[in-house]
Nucleic acid binder design. Structure first.
Lengths: 212, 212, 212, 212
DNA sequence: TATGAATGAGTTTTCATTCAT
DNA sequence: TATGAATGAAAACTCATTCAT
C-alpha cells in the first residue's frame, strides 16, 4: 500500500527527472567551461557532454550566460548552506574563521572544474563581477564579518578594526591562494595552506618585538 | 649647427611618430575595453577612438589579444620601473612595503580605464592569467619577497614565514581592495586604504593579548 | 427510447468533438496568423490559443502550412456554398453580380482575422498563390463568369467581352478594395463600397457622351 | 589634359564601383527571391549570385528585409520617374491613363524577376504591405487620380465619381491582371491586355442600351 | 486521443583580419 | 605607412515536429 497515489508518484518522478537533467547540464557546462574557457566553449559541446540535444539546454537555461550564472549561484548556495551548518556548532569565532577558510579551500579542491570556473571564468567581465559582488559574495563576506565582530566583542580581535575591511582582506588573501592553486600546474594541496594563511591573518607578519 | 644630421632627425621624428600612435591606440583600447568589456569591444571602435583606420591597428599590434596583452605589459613595466626607482631610496623594508602598496593603489586610481582592464578584463581566461602570473606578476611579487626577506634578516618580520606565501598573501589582499574599488559605484579613495590594510598585514587582526 | 444506440451516440459525439476541436484550432490559427503574420506565428501559440497541447495540433493538421491552407479552403467552401444558395434565387444576372460582390465584402467584414489572412498572409509565396489560383479561386471566378455570360445572352452585357477577362477584372477591383480596407487603420464599412464599385464595373468611368 | 584631378577621378570611380555593386546585389536578390521565395531564399545564395562574399551584402544593405524593401523602392522610383516623363507630353487624360497602364504592364514584362517579387513576394506580410501602401504606392495612385480629375474637368469622365475610388479600382484591376500573368505558366503578352482592360475601365461591361 | 518534453536541423549576421591601392 | 572595402568563418538560438507516456 503506497502513501502516494500514482499521479503523485508520476509528478515526483517528473520533478526528479528535471532536477537530474538540470544538474547534468550544469556539470557538463562547468567541465566544458573549465577546459575551453567560457567564451571559447560551444553550447553544443555542453549539450553533447550532458548527453542531451542542443535545444534541450535551452529548456533548462535561458542562454549561455545563464549557464555560467547558474554554476556560480547553485554551488555558492550549496557551499553557504553547508558552511553555516558546520560553523554554527563552533563556539570560538577565530576557530570559526579557520574552519571557514578550510571549507572554502576544500570546496574548491573537491571539484576542480568548479574551481576553475570560480577563479577564472567568472571574472571575465564587470557584468558578472558586479552581479556576484552584490549578491552571493555579500553573504560570504557577511559570515566572515559576523565572526570578526563576535571576536571583537569577546576581546579576541582588535576592536578598532573595521569588520568590513577585515572581511575583504581575508577574502582577498584566500582568493589569491585559490587562484594560484588553480593556475599552477604543480599538484599541491590547497587546504594545507589554511594554517599558514590564517596565521598571517591573525598574527600579521611582524615579529612580536618588531615595529612596523 | 645641429648635432644630428637631417636624416637622423627624420629617423628620430619617425620613431616618435610611431611611438605616439602606438600609445594612442593603446590608450584607446584601454578606454574601449573598459567601457564595453574585451569581448564586446570592436577593433574598429578602438581604431575610431584612436583616430586611425582599422588596418592601422594591425601595423602596431598583431591582433586583438595583443592589444590586451600590451596594455598590461606596457603599464606594468612602467609601474615596476617607477616603483623600483622610488623604493630603492627607502631603507626600512617595512616602510618599503607600505610605499609599494600605496604606489599600487595610486597607479590604479590614476587611470580608471587601466584599472578596469587590470582588475576585470584581464582575468577573463586562464590563457591570459597563466601568461601573466608567470611573467610580469612574478616580478611584482619578487619586489615584495625581497622586502620581506630583508625584513626577516633585520628581525622585523617573523623568520619562520615563507616569503613566497607572504607575497601572495599581500598581493591577494591588495588586489581584492582594488577590485572592490573598481566595481564599487561609490567614489572613494583607494590609496587612503593603504594604512589600514598594511596595518592588518603587519599586525594581524588579533588583540595583542588575544590567542588565535 | 432513442433512435440511436449508445454506440452510435458516442460515435456522433466523438465526431462532433473532433469537429469542434478542428474548428477551434482553425479559429485560433487565423487569429494568431492575423496578429503575428504567418511566418512569425508559432505553432505553440496557436495551440495555446486553442487550448490544446502542441502535439494535438498535429492530430488535426499535417503541419503549419496545412493550417493556412485549411483556413482558406474551409472558409472559401463555406462562402461559396452560401453564395450559391443565395444567388440561385436571383433572376437578373447583373443583380446577381451585385449581390455576389456584397457577399464577398460582408464575409470579410464579418471576420477580420480571416480577412487579414485572406488579403495578406495567403499571398506570401507563389507556392500558395498558384495552388489557390487553380482550385478554389477558379470556382469563385466561375460564378462571375456564369453571371456575365448569362448577362450577355440576355443582352445586358456587351457580347464582345471575354467573360474570363471580365471576371478577373471584377475580382481584381474587389480584391483591391478589400486589401485597402484590411490595411487601413480607419474603421469604415467595406460592404458600403459595393454600390459605387459595381457602378464603375457596369458603367465605366466615362461620361455618357464622353469619348474615351 | 584632364578636367578632373586624379583625386576627383578616384572619388568618381569609387562611387561608381559602389553603385555597380549595389545594383548587382539587388539584381541578384530579385532573381533569388523570385526563384525561391523571400523566406526560403538564403542571403548566401544572393551573395553568390552577385559574386560577392556573404558579408559584403551587409556593407550595402542593413539586412535581408532591407534587400526586399530596396528592390521595391528602387524599381518603383525608376518606374515613376520614367512614367512621369512620358506622361507629361500627353494632353488627353484618358490617353494618359491608357499609356500609364501600358507602361505598368511593360515594366513588369520587361523584368520577370522583378514582376514576381512585386506581385507575390512583396505581399507576404502586413509589415511590408502597410509600409508600401502608405509611401510609394500612394504616388502611383496619385498619378491616376490626377488624370481622372483632369478628365472630369474636361467632361470626359463622370463628375460624380470619387477619383480616389476610381484610382483604387483601376489599380486593383491592373494588379490582378499582373498577378495572373505572373502565376500563369502559359507565356502570353501582358501588355497586350492593356486595350481590353482599359475598355472595361472606361466603358464598363454593360451594353449601351443595357440597364444595370 | 492527448500531452509536452525533447529533438536537431538550419541561417542570419557579426567582426577580426587581410590586402590592393 | 595608411587606408577601409572586402572577406568568410563561425555559433547561439529557435521552433516545427515527433513520440513515449
Amino acid at each position: 500500500m503506497s502513501i502516494h497515489s500514482n499521479t503523485e508518484l508520476t509528478a515526483i518522478n517528473e520533478v526528479e527527472r528535471r532536477t537530474e537533467k538540470f544538474h547534468a547540464i550544469l556539470r557538463a557546462a562547468a567541465h566544458v567551461f573549465a577546459r575551453s574557457g567560457y567564451f571559447n566553449a560551444r553550447v553544443s559541446e555542453v549539450a553533447r557532454a550532458a548527453g542531451v540535444a542542443d535545444g534541450t539546454v535551452y529548456l533548462y537555461f535561458r542562454n549561455k550566460d545563464d549557464l555560467l550564472r547558474s554554476i556560480f549561484s547553485t554551488s555558492m548556495q550549496n557551499f553557504l548552506r553547508q558552511a553555516r551548518a558546520q560553523l554554527e556548532v563552533i563556539d570560538d569565532p577565530c576557530e570559526r574563521l579557520r574552519r571557514f577558510a578550510r571549507l572554502h579551500f576544500e570546496a574548491l579542491e573537491d571539484n576542480r572544474d568548479m574551481a576553475i570556473v570560480f577563479q577564472v571564468e567568472l571574472r571575465q567581465s564587470s557584468k558578472f563581477m558586479e552581479e556576484f559582488s552584490t549578491t552571493q559574495l555579500a553573504e560570504y563576506l557577511l559570515i566572515i564579518r559576523e565572526a570578526v565582530e563576535e571576536g571583537q566583542r569577546r576581546g579576541l580581535i582588535r576592536n578598532q578594526l573595521s569588520s568590513k575591511l577585515v572581511a575583504k582582506f581575508l577574502f582577498g588573501a584566500l582568493d589569491e591562494m585559490a587562484t594560484n592553486w588553480v593556475l599552477s600546474h604543480k599538484q599541491y594541496s590547497l587546504s594545507a595552506m589554511t594554517e599558514p594563511v590564517m596565521d598571517l591573518f591573525f598574527n600579521g607578519v611582524c615579529s612580536t618585538d618588531g615595529v612596523a
